[in-house]
Design a protein around this nucleic acid. Structure first.
Lengths: 354, 354
DNA sequence: TTGTACGCGTTATCAA
DNA sequence: TTGATAACGCGTACAA
């Protein structure tokens, strides 16, 4: 098999000094000409031409490392996720977000550095701790709620530009972007109200995620606003508590609309679907169902749930915008909420008149 | 909306000099300790401990630009793709390759920088330095055949360590890794032969991709090896040329096995499937079908095609191995071919005895 | 065992 | 209009 060998002349790369020598000017002048003369300094056209000619002749290209050292920035944005950025199993976890991150970063002239917290790199002596490593980038995005709070706090308090994707309240001064779960949930309730529903039950899991409390807040707010009555059921073990019997009793009490929150496992939603089936009922004929988020991939064959979609790409893009604002202006709005899009779906319909 | 402001005092990242001041040593000592003391210089354990402690306390992380400028290395590997790395159209996304790249890079102590040469970068569009940006990293992987050849050539000729993912012959001295399409295709033909087939037709598109010629070469080689007869059909417009009628005429000529190559669009495969259906036939009962690659996502509901899978993660890992060999040894095998895995599938079966 | 001095290639501030 | 000169942060002979 053939072999590729690197040319030994690694130092043979032309530098500004050599261009200067060829053009008969100083290296400073070369820098001035080649960097586009942003300072508006007057330059003799001949000098300019000679420099450009010499640079072309030598095939000069600036060394990005040197440029970035001098400019005290490297146009790098970090993306840190505690779980693997590219998980082998859950192929699509952060992917949609990364789409938005990359697009927005590219549009703003930044490159991306990927950091994975869970990765067990061979312990190289002197290597910075997991989170400190991100400092190599001008700023960093953090994904997922598993980012260690204390290390993150230190980073932020030392003035490192960081933006968390997903709500993160416990750290004051930490910028974050998140989806507007409250408003999206409220919209779902309003839609149900418009369909004639008077009673709505929200099924949650006991996971105390911030997104969960957001949804509950939006739920209660919309109830008050629309004059509906409703209840929040927090099930530690949805599969056990949300049964066909439970559904029947709710129907007996006049409830015709059930809303479940989306989680990693979507246990609440799954339990609800199973319970409805066990009760021998169908949506949207007998009752209405809604999912506060997107259904898991393995449920893709079922009728599309009424609910809302979190615009994940937009979330990533918003995070980049916030981070670059931090970078360039030194400040940014701390919590731009990205609106979710209502998804009509096919699991909710008019409330049967009693 | 509240505002997040970066602490003005702590602006900027900690440098070795500050670590040195905190530890009560010189900057040199800090550098020595943090870079792992490769020179084997004797260091007092206490000094070492103090430096490490100070570095951690300050959250020190080395500046990649400065490292690269001084030491000509920074343990960063670049990944350059001309099209977006995370395209909205998930179809031809590099995600599976990146999985392998990340794993292998992390295992070898490298971090990853994603460079996107997309045209949407405002300031850099069309500039010759689009590719030169990657020089910030010690070496770089290049994805896709759209990487501009002349810029890439310059990079390589100046001794920059680069590895192309996917076959790339037109540049001498450019290392690349690719899937072994020829052998994988040959294996498919051999399997068909083992099933009793005597005549095989390969349907290609007119796309002159290197992978396409590889497949054709493997096809012809296996024909000779197995004593089968066969034909290669290159269709400019598969949907128009590969019709039910065409299939019938092939069957009349004794052909019972059809093989299509995989492309971005998979037009050949789609045409073949449609044609077989139009002819009122079914695979594998009436004839055998094989796909040289993976089926597109929107055809996932169909029976799994017989054929082979390109181990994309392994491809990425192999690329990293080649690149790191280039970095550490200055040379590497130029074209490690990654073997593909035969996929039995359910579209090929025993040839009906005539 | 630790510190001094210098160079890497570029940009920026001043003098000339 | 141009050219010395000094950073930028880090690695490393060489000296102490």
């Amino acid at each position: 098999m053939a072999e590729i060998r690197l040319p030994k002349a690694r130092r043979g790369r032309p530098r500004q000094a050599e261009v200067a020598r060829l053009a008969g000017v100083s290296q400073t002048t070369v820098s001035l000409v080649l960097s586009g003369n942003k300072q508006g300094i007057a330059l003799h056209p001949d000098t300019r031409a000679r420099v450009l000619q010499a640079a072309r002749q030598l095939g000069y290209a600036p060394d990005p490392a040197a440029q970035r050292l001098a400019a005290a920035r490297n146009d790098l944005l970090g993306v840190f996720s505690f779980t693997a950025t590219f998980p082998t199993d859950v192929a699509h976890s952060y992917y949609p977000i990364l789409v938005g991150v990359e697009q927005e970063a590219v549009a703003r002239g930044y490159d991306l550095v990927l950091f994975t917290g869970s990765s067990s790199a061979p312990a190289r002596a002197g290597r910075a701790d997991a989170l400190d490593r991100v400092r190599l980038a001008d700023g960093c995005l953090f994904l997922g709620r598993h980012v260690p709070a204390d290390e993150l706090r230190r980073l932020v308090e030392q003035g490192y530009p960081a933006v968390h994707i997903g709500r993160r309240d416990e750290l004051d001064s930490l910028a974050w972007v998140g989806a507007d779960y409250a408003e999206a949930t409220a919209e779902v309730v309003r839609r149900l109200a418009a369909l004639g529903h008077r009673h709505v039950v929200l099924v949650c899991e006991t996971d105390e995620a911030l997104a969960s409390t957001d949804r509950e807040r939006g739920f209660r707010g919309a109830l008050a606003q629309t004059g509906l009555t409703g209840e929040v059921v927090r099930a530690a073990d949805p599969a056990a508590e949300i049964t066909g019997e439970w559904v029947r009793s709710q129907l007996a009490a006049g409830v015709r609309a059930f809303v479940a929150e989306e989680t990693d496992t979507c246990a609440a939603w799954r339990a609800l679907l199973t319970a409805v089936e066990d009760a021998g009922l169908t949506a949207p004929a007998d009752l209405s169902l809604a999912l506060l988020g997107a259904p898991p991939a393995d449920l893709a064959h079922l009728p599309e749930p009424t609910g809302f979609d979190v615009p994940k790409a937009e979330l990533g893009a918003a995070a980049v915008r916030t981070l670059t604002a931090l970078l360039t202006a030194g400040a940014a709005d701390c919590s731009p909420l990205v609106p979710c899009e209502f998804r009509p779906g096919r699991t909710a319909g008019p409330a049967p008149h009693p």
